[in-house]
């Protein structure tokens, strides 16, 4: 009796193994080469990492589910390039854990939104999208202006990002909270630290129009203003 059971059991496990074997190969063949792709993909030597404030903004973008309606991936099609800007390169999202390429454009693509509108435009649009774009179906995000930004744990966020391969330095991790505040508080010592660690070109200003208050709106606008601008590789490719 035991022997029979054993044989039957082996057969169902055999079926299971066959399913795993046959099922996993397709994915493996397509995905494995992508992990060696950095040998062939475009190079972007000047590419910088997200500042703590921008990362916090990105996390708000994720939290609010913006990716459900906005893509961040301009395809290599003429109309897309003319509508949104140079097509997206693989290298541009190499620090994006996770990527936010999206799958649906209920609203427009945002891959080149950085620098396209002013901070004031963004804040006004978030508070009441239909005041700026009457037919818009975007929800109002006025509450982001009321929510203070949580900054005390940003160092741990940066450390987790480093663990998955983003080159944050010890200095950046140690100063994460100060840098988040500094990026939205121009003129002070903290602001200089941001420029020192993340480069002179980093946006340092009061993003939400409320000096002295660090809100979630600051973070989200800071993030949007850098989307597509961590490197200019796409513009160089387009210029060629």
């Amino acid at each position: 009796m035991f022997g029979l059971h054993y044989k039957l059991e082996r057969k169902s496990i055999g079926l299971a193994l066959a399913i795993i074997g046959i099922g996993s190969i397709g994915g493996l063949v397509e995905i494995a080469p992508l992990f060696t792709i950095d040998q062939t993909v475009e190079d972007a030597p000047g590419m910088r990492v997200y500042t703590p404030l921008e990362l916090a903004g990105r996390n708000i973008y994720v939290r609010e589910g913006c990716y459900a309606c906005h893509s961040q991936m301009i395809r290599t099609l003429r109309d897309e390039v003319e509508r949104y800007g140079p097509y997206s390169l693989a290298v541009e999202s190499k620090y994006d854990h996770p990527m936010l390429w999206g799958s649906k454009r209920t609203g427009p693509d945002l891959a080149r939104i950085g620098g396209k509108y002013s901070d004031q435009w963004h804040v006004a649009h978030f508070v009441n999208p239909r005041e700026i774009v009457p037919p818009s179906v975007m929800p109002s995000y006025a509450r982001l202006l009321r929510n203070p930004l949580r900054t005390d744990d940003l160092g741990r966020h940066l450390r987790a990002m480093r663990a998955v391969g983003v080159p944050y330095t010890d200095d950046m991790i140690a100063n994460a909270t100060a840098d988040a505040i500094g990026q939205a508080t121009p003129g002070g010592e903290a602001a200089d630290g941001v420029s020192k660690r993340y480069g002179e070109a980093t946006n340092v200003r009061v993003f939400d129009g409320l000096p002295g208050e660090l809100t979630e709106m600051d973070a989200l606008v800071a993030y949007l203003q850098i989307v597509g601008r961590l490197t200019d590789a796409a513009y160089k490719t387009a210029g060629k």
Partner: peptide, 11 residues
């Protein structure tokens, strides 16, 4: 000349 090309060829 690189593991990437090899992998792609196998794929």
């Amino acid at each position: 000349d690189s593991p990437h090309d090899t992998l792609v060829l196998v794929s």
